[in-house]
Design a binder for these strands. Structure first.
Lengths: 218, 218
DNA sequence: CATCAATCTGAACGCCGTTAAGATCGAGGC
DNA sequence: GCCTCGATCTTAACGGCGTTCAGATTGATG
């Protein structure tokens, strides 16, 4: 307030960082715009030069979290080889591990997720779709089973993560959680391979990750 | 305020009903305790004789929603025959239909779900577990695959419902949504049947639905 | 009919998100 | 080197929120 320069310089990022830290400390709703401002050392109204509202900050944070998750999942799929079943398994394990390691922030994303993500990072759904495409190329999944398969696997993995983060399902050790994630992914893939493929004209789901302009203030 | 009797009589239920109606009208967070009180025709502090806090009302509503879902799913599984794969498919379709037909309330439950449910109604997880048990009895699922299978199916169905409710996945018609739910359930069941069963001592997940005393004020 | 606990009211507290008017600063043109 | 101008931040205020507390009203008990 007194020792700080009048212009902060990185206020937008500082607000996001501080909000995220508070979420980690006290849970999804354990913070206010005013408290974030105080902690950053700035008046409550300063935030309104960078975010149109508190909700806009929440959305921006959600996008940032999503972008980091996408990046991380891309790396993990890559590191697992990426071309076979192991790549998809790595996706599932990474998704769930992320929810386990940073539960408050993950819960924030689950509750206030923003449809579109940061366009500089791949959306988790894209990472999964790419992994499944390569699985088809390497013969690990019949091509007829591919359409819409991403949504089946995503649903299973997302559901496990949500149940864990919300405390509806409990496992004692992280290893048990990863094992469960692996079982979910492998079962899903086997089922998709053996299942009668969807008929022609089957309505394919669409992801909310559509390219669109994003007002940085929103 | 003037024409109403001093004692409401059914205030607790009226508050829950009105909050639910407001959620349906304006979304998960589009209401306040004060507004609910005004609509019921009661002063804001009256609610505190029935709920310890606003959050307690939220939790109570969440439990009520959960109980209704469990009851409904039980009926639908029953109506589908219940002993074979069709019973589990009916569970998945019902779960997703519920999310589709009452999205705001479903979103409320997803965001503020209470671990334990009303003990007079079966928890959805119990309904699913029972359906899977009968599936094993009728030979539709190998007994070795049964341990933990409920959590695999639940994760897949829950995930699809969550993705739909949050708008992360879109399908144009309700029929397409049900078809997707069916595909998810059938693929999961096939995968569980064909997959190498989990080894002895495999750590089984636990549901948060443990019988425990619930303070009606909380 | 008196008592008493349960229920509800009215007023107040501090915190919240948000807005408006003005102070402070840094950068680009003279 | 100064001046302007737009961006950034402050101070002050508004109404609404959840919550508390002292007191009014009521139906049930005996």
């Amino acid at each position: 307030m007194a020792d700080r320069p009048y212009h902060h310089g990185e206020l937008r990022t500082a607000l996001l960082d501080t909000a995220e830290a508070l979420i980690r400390e006290r849970g999804v709703d354990g913070w206010s715009l005013r408290e974030v401002s105080v902690r950053v050392g700035v008046s409550p109204s300063a935030a309104y030069h960078h975010f149109a509202s508190r909700d806009a900050l929440v959305q921006a944070l959600s996008r940032r979290v999503l972008a980091r998750l996408g990046e991380r999942l891309g790396d993990e799929v890559e590191r697992a080889g990426g071309d076979g079943v192991e790549g998809v398994v790595a996706f599932g394990r990474g998704y769930v591990r992320w929810a386990l390691e940073d539960p408050a922030v993950a819960r924030h994303w689950l509750a206030y997720n923003a449809g579109g993500g940061d366009r500089t990072a791949p959306h988790p759904h894209r990472v999964l779709a790419a992994a499944l495409d390569r699985l088809v190329e390497t013969g690990g999944l019949p091509a007829e089973a591919r359409p819409g398969a991403d949504f089946v696997v995503w649903a299973a993995v997302h559901g496990l993560a949500a149940l864990l983060v919300d405390g509806l399902v409990h496992l004692d050790t992280p290893e048990a959680v990863y094992a469960q994630a692996e079982r979910v992914v492998r079962a899903t893939l086997i089922g998709l391979s053996r299942q009668a493929p969807p008929p022609q004209g089957w309505p394919t789901p669409r992801s909310a990750y559509t390219e669109r302009a994003v007002d940085p203030r929103r």
